[in-house]
Computed example of a mutant assay.
Amino acid sequence: MTADDAYGRLDDDDYPAYTMGRAAELLGTTQGFLRAIGEARLITPLRSPGGHRRYSRYQLRIAARARALVDQGTPIEAACRIVILEDQLEEARRINDEYRRAAESANPPTAA
């Protein structure tokens, strides 16, 4: 990988650029929290060639949402489930909107 390739990946939200320690530091939490949300299958960190967990910016945003719920008193397992359900709802709404737009363009309203 060239330096230009590595630099270009810094803008990639899915590139696993953060070690577990750095991810925990950025989130203001513990490595145990990151392990727990991994066990709850909220996020699945990639592994470095040495087997260490690596996190992307996208995964850190998801973890931050779970952390906010936990900070409000929600158990970790419930917080993870809430985040998953919120994302599923958002995706279902997006798909519904696409279907609605497609139906409207296929059957434009007629003038009365």
Rank of each mutant, 00 (worst) to 15 (best):
G21Y: 02
G28L: 10
F33T: 00
L42A: 05
Y18Q: 01
E90L: 15
L27R: 03
G32L: 06
N107G: 12
A3H: 12
E39D: 04
A17Y: 05
A79C: 01
P109A: 13
E90C: 12
H52Y: 07
D71E: 02
T110V: 15
A92E: 04
R35G: 03
A78E: 02
P108G: 14
S105C: 13
R41T: 06
I37K: 02
I43C: 06
T110S: 13
V83S: 06
R35Y: 04
V83R: 02
D13N: 10
E90G: 12
R57W: 04
L42S: 01
A79N: 01
M20W: 05
T30E: 03
D11A: 15
A92S: 11
R94Y: 11
E98W: 09
A103G: 14
T29Y: 05
D4Q: 11
Y99L: 15
G51P: 01
G8P: 05
A64D: 01
G73N: 00
E77T: 03
N96L: 14
E77Y: 04
T29P: 01
R101G: 10
V83T: 04
L69E: 00
D4C: 09
G21W: 03
I84S: 10
D5E: 15
L46C: 10
L85A: 14
N96Y: 13
Y7D: 13
Q59V: 03
L10M: 10
L27W: 02
D14C: 12
T74F: 09
R100C: 11
Y7C: 11
G21A: 08
Y58W: 12
Y15I: 08
P16T: 07
L34R: 00
A66N: 00
A23R: 00
E98A: 14
E86N: 10
F33W: 01
T44A: 15
Y58M: 14
R67V: 04
R93F: 10
A78K: 04
I76M: 05
D13S: 12
